[in-house]
Write a protein that binds this DNA or RNA. Structure first.
Lengths: 340, 340
DNA sequence: TTGTATGCGTTATCAC
DNA sequence: GTGATAACGCATACAA
């Protein structure tokens, strides 16, 4: 709470104008070496640092970027942590402040972030196929990047996981192990009907895999909680005793699947192979360590941030749309089918 | 990227001075109802919103708070996620921006956050018993709150978990189940020697419990990774075949403990009871669901943020030091001792 | 109750 | 090369 030296103090002490000091601070040309030297010394003496806030106001920017993550749906959120850290690391290295907004935002609130120069750009998470935030920001021509994507993505920058590919890859892995009755547990319909992209595309992937391998469609949906997945899995196993493989687009809560299997005396992977799509960290936490589609959350966060920052630096930067094909990591929850 | 109405535009259009507009924006008294009415209408018409950044510069504040979380040690970080969300929610409700800084910060960098009015206050995580950041901020009289605490906490505001109590409670739980040979796995010495508080105090708790119940001290330390805990546990079990209970201050990586037990044919909890200190989310993810000291991460985050905001609002606000006694939640990893 | 004038700490546009 | 001076958009002591 002390009073700090300002650019004025420096200018006076060095016997130059604030303009010159400003030039030196911003590494602009056209300043005599001797002058620069002297001013730098004074800056040292006075322990002066520029007032970021004032710099930003004058320059018409904020040097900060917000991540909008509506957190209503808190689950096993190691994944979100990785998103955050990925974003935050890149932002800091580029000299940006990173703010995290987890409350749901109103239209007014979102616009005000930009109008008040609180942020230079935002990254959106939990994108719906039709998302009012996207339309709003696009209409106003504010810089933003999506983690996830919409139905119509023309002109948008996003980074997303190819859920369709992921689910297909999971099915293919099980198929190659000899499984011919592969169940699928998706996110509950109510969310799919709200156009939640990953749920929709995951189902497509499962459908396509079944079509290609000529497998029966064995399907349930479930809320993303352990209990719900426990119930859904039980239901599915009871209805389809011939099931030997199970794929889900759920994350941590799929331990409910494992417990449902265990309750019925099924050993994973001997009697039932199980797969999901989750971060390596969480997959390793589960018993048995889960063969899974590896969700590259941190990489997505950092790449989204990089895209946004490039966009901010370069007005002409073209929208970039990245769809990552997540790798499959084999661990211990899948194995060759064993006919009963 | 449009040009927005300013307070000047509003003033002109309403035929008043900017002072009056400012008064109305800030809900100050002494403004005629009629005037207020008229100005508010103009604000509507022009779709005006105050420029937050300029407000902050003029008012000498930033209305934002940073959380400093040096993320070198990424583990199973659902816990950190909860800290973040706890902080972020409270900040947003109080009208503060929340920035997350995960990179390690230099002395200069930390000071500049304040000098440049980038933040009004900070919350520190990963506190060491002697922490240069604490001393620096205290010397400069900048507002901050700790999640965790130091050795000398005079005048500091912090919120912390009582690890000593937690470890004692864990031991007591096992003792009450009949266990008389309770091992302990702490964080590795190298970190303890760096004065990392939780490790130090956890060990105190274990020691005190052993003293009180007259138990032998059976102890190893380990890095917080699955592999390290697997190795440490194996080592401990081999050296002490009479071990029936195991307490650790580790979080997610304690699945290494469970796997070491499993490898030796020990069933948890029948042959070995295991406890840790972790969030409920992670405890439920583990198989078997873990009896654990429940780490109240989100509550700590929100309380820390509340403390800091009160401090910012009220200069006279006294330093508050909160040490939470985390509850013990019984799940399925502990049971009565079964003599071999 | 309202308005004037000054300040917040910079950057940027000119002249010189 | 360098320096006035005007923005940037708002808050606020003081005067009216």
């Amino acid at each position: 709470m002390e009073r700090h030296a300002t650019i004025n103090d420096v200018a006076k002490r060095a016997g130059v104008s604030i303009t010159t000091v400003s030039r030196i601070l911003n590494n602009k040309p056209d300043v005599a070496p001797a002058t620069r030297q002297r001013v730098l010394e004074v800056i040292q003496e006075l322990d002066y640092t520029p007032h970021t806030q004032a710099q930003n106001l004058a320059a018409g920017r904020s040097r900060s970027i917000a991540l909008l993550y509506p957190s209503e749906s808190m689950g096993f959120s190691e994944m979100e942590f990785e998103f955050f850290v990925g974003c935050a690391q890149v932002a800091a290295k580029a000299g940006f402040l990173f703010n995290l907004i987890v409350n749901s935002v109103t239209e007014h609130g979102l616009l005000n972030l930009f109008r008040g120069s609180q942020v230079d750009g935002v990254i959106l998470m939990e994108i719906h196929l039709r998302d009012w935030r996207v339309e709003l920001l696009r209409d106003h021509d504010y810089p933003f990047v999506l983690i996830g994507r919409c139905q119509d993505n023309t002109g948008l920058s996003f980074i997303d996981v190819d859920f369709e590919y992921g689910m297909m890859a999971a099915c293919e892995h099980l198929f190659s192990l000899g499984h011919r009755h592969i169940g699928f547990i998706n996110l509950t319909d109510s969310l799919r009907e709200q156009d939640y992209g990953p749920a929709v595309r995951s189902f497509w992937g499962y459908e396509r895999a079944c079509a290609r391998f000529q497998l029966p469609i064995i399907y349930r949906d479930s809320l993303p909680t352990i209990d719900a997945l426990f119930a859904a899995t039980g239901d599915l196993l009871d209805a389809h005793p011939d099931l030997t493989g199970l794929v889900t687009m759920h994350c941590g809560s799929l331990v409910g699947v494992l417990r449902a299997a265990q309750k019925r005396g099924l050993v994973v992977p001997d009697d039932l192979s199980v797969m999901g799509i989750l971060t390596d960290q969480i997959a390793q936490l589960i018993t048995p360590p889960l063969t899974a589609i590896s969700f590259p959350a941190q990489a997505m966060g950092s790449r989204a941030m990089r895209m946004l920052i490039r966009k901010l630096r370069d007005e002409t930067y073209q929208a970039k749309q990245i769809t990552l094909k997540p790798p499959l990591v084999v661990r211990e929850s899948t194995g060759p089918v064993r006919h009963k």
